[in-house]
Each structure stands twice: as structure tokens, then as C-alpha cells.
Design a protein around this nucleic acid. Structure first.
Lengths: 205, 205
DNA sequence: CTGGTAATCAAATAGGTATTTGATTATAGA
DNA sequence: TCTATAATCAAATACCTATTTGATTACCAG
């Protein structure tokens, strides 16, 4: 056996997809290299040809996979001339559909990221990305407040609230459920906007 | 050495607290029995005296620790004669302050629960509890809708939205931050209520 | 005092699995 | 065709850490 004909060789990308799916099912720790390999008809050792640094490198690649794509699109929306409301709707949709469109990565993002947080470079890169993401959201809310279309709120907390709600979608969403990612996004965005319009009254008893 | 004087012997409870903190720092898998033991000045083997089933039993105990207390209180609120609004405020506060009051357990709850989900009994117990919790929240929202004080919404989704936002608090909250658990709960509850009052208009373009 | 028991320790044991190694073969380019 | 390289495999290796074991000591009840 050994090398298979060209049509059967697997790419990094193939492995990433397989890995994401295995991580999703079992979580990082219970996912064996062998499991990942099996998914693409390789043996565990062969994975090291594609990912010399091993399992962690694979996880990292899986996580990166999902993130940058969304980030770029979000920046675009921010820079657009849309109303804050519309911007919010769009970024919420971007985030949620990205999660629901790749549930395996989404779950890894939530559950496995901490595995890597003791590698300084990784932690930095992750923190930087997350902060940028949060900032993007804050910018939209703040813009709405400044323009008077949203009530003043604790922007930081509000953003954490919505990101929590959104990230959690990656935990419970199932592709065969009743709602599509877009459905979920639409409804949630509407609620966020309602909250942003009706606040500031029932706070102090 | 061997047995230490009475004042220095550790209790199950001591170990649980230590374990929760170690799980919080490192996650279940990277937390060694030795780490937990060190925290209470024991050796790893000694933990088996208190928890014969070992590491999993400890995790399980840690998770149980946090849950039942809140659940009972939530039921009480449900059964009370308060307005739906007030009920919602109170259960949100119960949940969030319970998370922020024991951040180690909260994080374990979010991140480590899945470790145990392949033990059928555990999975069942967990699912049952979670469903009951969700149902309690749904009951409040539904009551508000029925009484006409909340706009009609997809109750199931709404509850998932708020639970996501709330659970996520366990991920980012730090006791030395600017906001107390109660602060967070008050603001979030207010937003949820705003959303419940102002919905149903901007859904269909 | 004198057992008996509870709490502990130090030192194996044991199992799992990530990673390494050395050989093997297909393919592409000279 | 011949050779270098890429992709693969099977079979070690290596390590880590949960768990077990057998001895040791403190405390309490009688």
C-alpha cells in the first residue's frame, strides 16, 4: 500500500473538515488522532505529514478556519453607510449563520479554545481577534446611541449579552431543527433592537 | 506523617472547592488529581479516600453542587403571585448571581459538562435538569404573553437567547470587575423585558 | 491503656494515546 | 527511464497521569 493514487490523497483541508467534525462529536480530548485519521482513511501517523506539530496544530487550524472569514465581512458592514439598526441586523446574521453553517467549528470555538490558551502566541492571537470582534459590535451600538436611535446603555455589557446569546446558538443549534440560522438571527436581532429602544426606564426601580 | 491532626484533615467539601477552582483554571482534562490534592495539602492518592470513584466523581459532585440550590429557588419564584415581569427579574438574578457567586463551578458547568455526557445516567440527569430549567423560564414568558404584558414571541427561542446570554456571564465575569452579579442581572433583565415589550413589529420587514 | 478506624502517604501499577521511526510506493520532472 | 519527493503505512516508543496498594499514624471509644 503506502502512497495512494493522486485522487485519493487527502489535503490539509480534508483533514481540517474531518477534525472539526470529530472535535464536535467528542471534544478535543476524547478525539483521537486515529479518529480523525480514520475519517479520511489515513492512519494516525500520517497526519503528522500534513500537520507536523500534531493535534494542537490541527485544532488551531480548525479554529482559525472559521474566524477570519466572518471578521472581514463584519468590518465591511461597519464601514458601510447603513443605519445602525441595519448594521446590527447584518452582523448578527453574519455571526449566527457562520456558527450554524459550521456547527462543528462553532462548538470547538466555544468548548476547546481554552485548551490552547496556555500557548502565549495563541492566546494573544485569540484575544486580539475576540477583542476586535467585540469592538466592532460596540461601535455599532455606540453609533446608534450617538445618533439617538438607541437608548443609552452600558455598551460593553450589552455587547457581551448579545455575544453570549449568539455564541450559545453554537451549543444548541441542530441543522435539522425548525429554525434556520437566518431565522434565528432575524428574531434575535429584532429583540436586541427592541431592547436598545426601550431601555433606560425600568432600571432604577 | 500520615494522618494529620484533626484541624488539618480535609473534608469532602474542601476538596470540592479546591477541585472547582482547579477545573476552572485548567479545565477538567488538564487538571491533575495531584493539582487538586496539592490545593488542600494532600497527595493524589488520598483523594480516593473521599471520592472512591475518582476524578469523574469529583467533577460530578462539583457540578451538582451549584445546580440544585438555584433550581429550588426558581421554582419558588414561579409559584409566587408576582407579575411575570417581576418573576423574570428575579429568576434572572438568581441564575446570574449564582453563576457569579461561584465562578469556578459556573465555568465547569459550561465547559466540562460534556465530559460526562457519555455516562447515560449523568446525561439523563443533566438533560432533565436543564429542560426543567428552560421550562421554568418558558412558563414565565408564556404567562406574560397570555396576560398581554409581553408581545408574542417564539418562547423557546427567546428562552435560549436569554439563557445563552446568562450562561456566557460565567465565561467572562471576573469578581474584580466593575459590575456585581446583581448589577449585571438587573441590566440584562431590563433588556429582556424591553425586548418582550417592543417585539413583533420589526420582524416582517 | 488498647484496639479499631479514619486519614494519610509513598511508591507501584496500568492503560491510553500522542508522537516518532523506518520502510514503502506513487507520481512528477529531468 | 531514473530519481527525488510526497504521501502513506505498520510498528515501536514514550510519556503522562489516574488509580491501586500496603504501610503508617492520629484520634476516639471503651
Amino acid at each position: 500500500m503506502a502512497r495512494k493514487p493522486a485522487e485519493q490523497t487527502v489535503s490539509r483541508e480534508d483533514i481540517l473538515i474531518a477534525a472539526a467534525s470529530v472535535f464536535h462529536e467528542k471534544g478535543y480530548h476524547r478525539a483521537k488522532m486515529e479518529d480523525i485519521a480514520a475519517e479520511v482513511n489515513l492512519t494516525a501517523g500520517s497526519l503528522y505529514h500534513h500537520f507536523p506539530y500534531g493535534k494542537q496544530e490541527i485544532l488551531l487550524a480548525v479554529l482559525n478556519e472559521g474566524v477570519d472569514a466572518v471578521a472581514a465581512q463584519v468590518e465591511e458592514v461597519i464601514a458601510s453607510g447603513l443605519s445602525p439598526e441595519e448594521k446590527l441586523r447584518q452582523v448578527v446574521a453574519l455571526h449566527i449563520t457562520s456558527l450554524t453553517g459550521n456547527i462543528a467549528i462553532a462548538a470547538a470555538m466555544v468548548f476547546e479554545i481554552r485548551t490552547m490558551l496556555d500557548i502565549p502566541e495563541v492566546k494573544e492571537a485569540y484575544t486580539a481577534r475576540r477583542d476586535r470582534f467585540e469592538k466592532d459590535f460596540r461601535k455599532i451600538i455606540q453609533e446608534g446611541i450617538d445618533k439617538g436611535v438607541f437608548c443609552p446603555v452600558d455598551v460593553k455589557l450589552f455587547v457581551r449579552m448579545i455575544l453570549g446569546a449568539q455564541n450559545w446558538v453554537g451549543v444548541w443549534y441542530r441543522p435539522d431543527g425548525a429554525l434556520s440560522g437566518q431565522d434565528i438571527a432575524d428574531q434575535m436581532a429584532a429583540w436586541f433592537i427592541s431592547a436598545l429602544k426601550g431601555s433606560a426606564n425600568e432600571l432604577q426601580d
